[in-house]
Amino acid sequence: MQKSLHINPDNCTGCYQCVLACSDEHGGDFNPMKSRIQVFRFEDEGRYVPYTCTQCDEAWCQKSCPTDAIKIDANGAKVIEDALCVGCKVCTIACPFGTVNYNADSGKVIKCDLCGGDPACVKACPTDAITFINADTTGFDKMRAWAAKTDAGTQSA
């Protein structure tokens, strides 16, 4: 079964636990700027929205890489192979979502690699705003909620 990260911003409190878990997992320290997941705060609306790579099947980043440094692992994650990455940043331009970014400390790019199949952000999130679930059924929870509403509308009170 292929799993994917599923984000539900309605639950997000903007706590940065996911961001901190990601930077710790990949960099060994707590450094929000070096996290592969970022949380954007729309303060005027009271909304907090986590955002990261959704692992496109046909990945623009991968196609654009001149050194074939972006590989697909067993979980379907597009993973940067550091030994091959030359830091040309073409993939950061190719990604339509901006989720591949350059890291000046290493001279390579960084992006979400699903932590080898057990994403640290998911474990850290206190509100289930990020879950790692069956990629084929990520919409079922929303469908269930709407199904309940639709049905309620047809029942007499």
Binding site: T13, G14, C15, Y16, Q17, E45, G46, R47, Y48, P126
Partner: peptide
């Protein structure tokens, strides 16, 4: 009340946004 929100690293999230 619009939502509750968290300070940095806080898993309680008591802040009110109104």
């Amino acid at each position: 009340l619009v939502s509750n929100a968290a300070c940095f690293a806080c898993t309680i999230a008591c802040q009110r946004v109104s």
